[in-house]
Write a protein that binds this DNA or RNA. Sequence first.
DNA 1: CTAGTGCACTGGTCGGACCAGTAGGCTCTG
DNA 2: CAGAGCCTACTGGTCCGACCAGTGCACTAG
Lengths: 256, 256
Amino acid sequence: MGGPRFEPVRAVRAYERVVEQVEEAIESGALTPGGRLPSERELMVQFSVSRSTVREALRVLQARGLVRSRPGDPNGAEVLPFTPAALHKSMTTLARVEELSLAELVQFRMVLDSAAILLAARLRTEEQLAEMYAAVAAMRAALDAGEAGDEGADSFGAADLAFHDAVARASGNKLIEICTDVVRSIVLKLIAGRITDEPDRGALMRRSIRNHEDVVAAMRAGDGPLAARLSRKAMYDYYAGYVPERERGALRALLE
Amino acid sequence: MGGPRFEPVRAVRAYERVVEQVEEAIESGALTPGGRLPSERELMVQFSVSRSTVREALRVLQARGLVRSRPGDPNGAEVLPFTPAALHKSMTTLARVEELSLAELVQFRMVLDSAAILLAARLRTEEQLAEMYAAVAAMRAALDAGEAGDEGADSFGAADLAFHDAVARASGNKLIEICTDVVRSIVLKLIAGRITDEPDRGALMRRSIRNHEDVVAAMRAGDGPLAARLSRKAMYDYYAGYVPERERGALRALLE
DNA sequence: CTAGTGCACTGGTCGGACCAGTAGGCTCTG
DNA sequence: CAGAGCCTACTGGTCCGACCAGTGCACTAG
């Protein structure tokens, strides 16, 4: 039969117990976003631990994006609504430490974005479709403004963001929405600097706009698979130039 | 012209500076996994801060999965190789706090897994293909063992994990690999308990095995799109029963 | 009734102290 | 001389008490 199966007892630190309890209170809904934790001095009484322990627990909770504390606030730490900030942080370190290549990130975006478009083609409302049209129009306006001066880059990027954000929201999947946003910002940070030096930037933008128009037209027509395929091609066209030649093959694998 | 553009100065805490410096040392490669940080008392000298501050910084770094400290270790905190533990944590809280539905999670898995299979169908080596066959064989063995007693559930799940892990690795995209793994474990945790109560469990497993066989056959034939479509169907078949009726439509949208 | 001023309290940081635990050098023994 | 055991100098975990610069609110003076 074998003796009783003993499990190794991991030494559980005091601050971890505090973290667990607060975390559970938040997840169970006992503490809602906007609500306040008791002050540190109050917490040390309730948990019967020292203030150092309380503070270390709060640091962990803060690192996980669950609470925020402000000096001088008489109300104690504030419970935050969930933000993907922690997710963003861990993915960013993943990208840096684990040497994620730009190709992998762009590939990931192609996968998620085309999935979002496939879903949005079915689920989108007329209003959301209008948002997408507006975003494309804003991209065109940014292009025209950029032809004269050199200011259009920011607003073009903002319009592009608005487009993909509208699509992601229309997909009805919050996880896709958040992940696309996170990965998008990481990609942009990686190619920042190189993006404005692009010699053919105007042509790139024009092509991107045309691609977006094709995508949204296919979505209006309800042809999700086509829209998804077009969106993968659009993203490939836009980012392939930044990806080393020998890694582009993996990207093209998604173009069918 | 407008006056000089002042930026709001956010009060930067001492422990944050410590975190930043250590983080940068890790990301720049000055500190490599397996390496050791100086002891806390040594750090408080180097940074000219108190031990409380050092410790709060270490707690943050630990929460981000970058270091780990053990009591009594004369070598100081250990720099960890990257693990998706932090990513996992933040996604889990995302799932709980932000009320991600099971349907969204399964949908996400369908998207990522089919993408991984599409890529793996092109890039897989013979060895990786053999791994997948072995995993399917293990699933069948677990089923047969389970018919007699009631022990097969664990080994069936383990074999299933091995299959999808092999596919994800063969895709050549570490981000996909990590995310599928994270989401997978969250899904399993959500339906834990319900999974063994399934009355038709044997039939479900048999069907799943057949689906996996079809997928791997399509991959051997090099038909990525077919394999991807089959894998989406396989996942739908396996998990749809746990998803509320009215949310299944979004899942079916991915079946074409 | 309003505007200004304290006060009580907050979080951030510091320094010192104690404890249980570890690792490696040391001594003592064979 | 070799090996087994103790011992000490560290480690991280926790506690305590203190000070500071801020914040909100009540209270007061106009």
